[in-house]
Design a protein around this nucleic acid. Structure first.
Lengths: 220, 220
DNA sequence: TCCTTCCCTACCCGGACGGATAGGGGCCAC
DNA sequence: GTGGCCCCTATCCGTCCGGGTAGGGAAGGA
């Protein structure tokens, strides 16, 4: 264990950064690998699923950075991220995603991720970000983080009061009015009122439509 | 017009294939551009949204192949594809996607697309596919097309009878039992029976949960 | 042939839902 | 203070939903 840590330190001092790339998109893996290894300071290992990545780390492989795709086989959104983080405290883990929104990004960053990389980044920015993170820094693209902060999540959401949003979240989980009332610690008639008013606001005529509209809008 | 067509023919005879790449992922654009132009036989034009792509084509630019991302700004799933196809009969259009399933692929291929490219392809396969399509062939990765054909869309779907699937589709549109009955031309009690039985089969306890489960499973 | 499966229809009932209406309390701006 | 907005509670009513039970007809395999 000490020997391995020492080896890692040597690796770092020699400026050869080991990066594990786990993504089911061959294209992304190929590109990152080519660009990073072209830099001369990176050594990359590529896998196509979360389970392969986990196996490598469990086998004792040392990486300066682990890149996990948000929507890859076995990843289950952020479940894989937390499992990987729990494996070894020393591993720096970052999330890369083509679809996830700002909320997900904030979640992983607050959870101590090395960074969040949307796939809308250019190859150059991506390589820079990977180097930045492998050096121990925390990275997130500022424009991406600001982008959805300006539009407070969604035009639909801003017409709803905070309470109505909480009720709508219950609807998107298939809960009954009674369950929502219990969870929010209010009476059922109140829930029914919020449900009714939010129907008008978002243009739904029943709870299923409301749940689907909220999901389509990317809420919750 | 005739001059433009002639120019295009000359371009083709010189084996320089013009490709328009529309994708909001900078990384994918960079990579495809580098790989394709590295071949020496491609000329690539890159944009990040459907509207930009449409503007270029409307301006009279000629391409041997137009690559459209399934989930880019302004694309609206397949709406952009059909709009682009309607623009000029001569333009070969292909869809590239990181998330779309086999149903979408079959839709676009039946609609006469030049091809369907999942982003799980390797860089090499992708370049080969682009060349293949630019030459006038129709391309789709066989393993991808077979993959979800073996699992008939979803484990959830195969437990449901055809009629139950139709009813479930109605649920995912927020319809009432009465509306579903009218649409399928059956009586409402029959709909209620199908609804009840499909609840048991997919593990839902109300119509909203059923609709959400179906959506999450990628059905409809 | 029987048996199973699927699809259709029908009845019952209790509970949930959708809509309207009528309040009260807290907070803030004018 | 007054008015407005949001949140809370409540009652009434008609409809819809979820669950149970019962049965007939068509199609296909044992």
């Amino acid at each position: 264990m000490i020997a391995q840590q020492a080896a890692q330190v040597v690796t770092r001092s020699a400026n050869v950064l080991r990066v594990l790339i786990a993504d089911d998109h061959d294209l992304l893996r190929d590109t990152l690998q080519i660009f990073l290894e072209g830099e001369g300071t990176f050594e990359t290992v590529c896998v196509a699923s979360y389970s392969e990545a986990e196996a490598l780390v469990k086998a004792g492989e040392q990486f300066d950075l682990v890149l996990l795709d948000y929507s890859m086989p076995g990843m289950n959104a952020l479940e894989g991220f937390h499992k990987m983080r729990a494996l070894e405290g020393s591993h720096r883990v970052a999330i890369i995603s083509g679809t996830a929104n700002r909320d997900v990004a904030e979640q992983v960053l607050e959870a101590g991720a090395a960074g969040f990389l949307p796939k809308t980044l250019s190859a150059k920015s991506l390589v820079n970000a990977v180097r930045f993170m492998a050096m121990g820094e925390q990275y997130a693209p500022l424009d991406f983080m600001r982008q959805e902060e300006a539009t407070p999540s969604h035009p639909m959401a801003e017409r709803l009061s905070p309470r109505e949003l909480e009720v709508l979240e219950g609807l998107t989980q298939g809960k009954s009015n009674k369950e929502i009332a219990r969870d929010l610690d209010i009476r059922e008639p109140t829930v029914k009122l919020h449900v009714k008013t939010l129907y008008r606001k978002i243009g739904a005529s029943n709870r299923t439509q409301a749940a689907l509209l909220a999901k389509e809008a990317g809420l919750f």
